[in-house]
Simulated assay, not measured.
Amino acid sequence: MLQTGNVQQVVKHSMAYGFLLSQPFSFYVDAYPVLQNEVLSQAQNLKYGQHNESVIVLQYKLSQLNYFKQPVDGEFGIRTEYALKSFQKDHHLTVNGVANQKTITTLMKIERKKYLQPLKSIKNDYVPGEQGEDITKIQKALQYFGYYKGELDGIYGPLTDKAIINFQEDHGLEVKKSINEKTVNEIYEAEPTEPVKTVEAPTSNTEQKEAEPKPVKKQTTSYSVSSVITTAKSLIGTPYVWGGESPGGFDCSGFIQYVYQSQGIKLGRTVSDIWNATKPVSNLSVGDFVFYQTYKAGPSHMGIYLGNNQFIHAGESNGVEISDMGISYWKERYIGAKRVAQ
């Protein structure tokens, strides 16, 4: 699983940095493979009937490996199940059509091999201006980690040069306008190795039902609402960055998590995690969480209520900002309020 720190390190040079999520579902296909892994690693037992961003990533990865032949739509239907079972069969996994821990780990491993294994055949050093099959292999490997964003053309031009330099800088290598054996080996070995923490689905229906993810434990603690609001407002203007959870850039749940961590309160990382770990309220109070259904069913965006029908949140267009709950966009998508138990 890709660590959050690694995401933040790589994302500044990636296709995801500054990506405007006006069409959120398309992002999961356009994101580079390692960042897709971060999305998929949060999934638990993806299976028939589900519809979410993790299924989008699953379908896309299966299509890249020539198992899924249909349009990527995020619907885990019969064709997705068939593709997954075919993958499981070919790689000696339990053929149950459920994307459990072992299946997800194997899928990532096979995809990694597709992008990075060709590097092992590279024996020569290269400098800007050269071209050939080896350059294409390097471009493809750098694309895997989000550094290379151009066409795989086999030309060591400005885009390839920039990707190499960014990789060297991020991995503590001597920055050189060339590709040598050491750089190639570093790219090959840069694959994160921490195992994906998902729940493996058993083969029997009874065991599978018992293995369903348990609800997040409810958070019980005390904190200062005024301090929360002060901290939140101090971050107004911070840009929106998908996966961001620091003052360098936030996504909506990363912003909430950061604000509450500053008060010693540990929350889940996703909107769904926070929704599941907090208690519903009927009457809004300052400091409550307000939840919205935006690009998918269920809670997918959130903010902190400030009073006077306003809330503060990390918006996709303007970053951390204060918005009016009464405008039609938010009013139509509002699904409820919750708060941290004290």
Rank of each mutant, 00 (worst) to 15 (best):
G5T: 11
V7G: 06
G18F: 06
S22E: 15
D30A: 14
Q36G: 08
N37Y: 08
V39D: 00
A43C: 07
K47P: 09
Y48M: 12
V55F: 07
V57Q: 04
L58K: 07
Q59M: 04
Q59A: 09
K61A: 05
K61P: 11
L62D: 04
L62K: 10
Q70E: 13
Q70A: 01
F76D: 01
K89G: 03
H92M: 06
T106I: 08
K109V: 04
Q117S: 14
I122N: 09
N124F: 09
I138V: 15
I138T: 04
Q139M: 02
Q143M: 15
Y148H: 11
K162C: 01
Q168A: 11
G172C: 00
G172W: 01
I179C: 00
E181N: 08
V196Q: 00
V196G: 07
E200P: 13
P202W: 01
S204I: 10
E210R: 13
A211W: 04
P213N: 11
T221K: 10
S224P: 01
S224N: 15
I229C: 05
S234I: 09
S234K: 11
G237C: 10
V241E: 12
E245P: 05
P247T: 03
Q257L: 13
Y258M: 02
S272W: 10
N276R: 13
K279E: 15
V281P: 05
G287Q: 00
Y292A: 04
T294I: 04
L306F: 08
L306K: 04
N309P: 05
I312K: 01
G315A: 14
S317W: 10
N318I: 13
G319I: 03
G319W: 07
E321K: 14
G326N: 15
K331D: 11
R333A: 03
R333Y: 10
V340T: 01
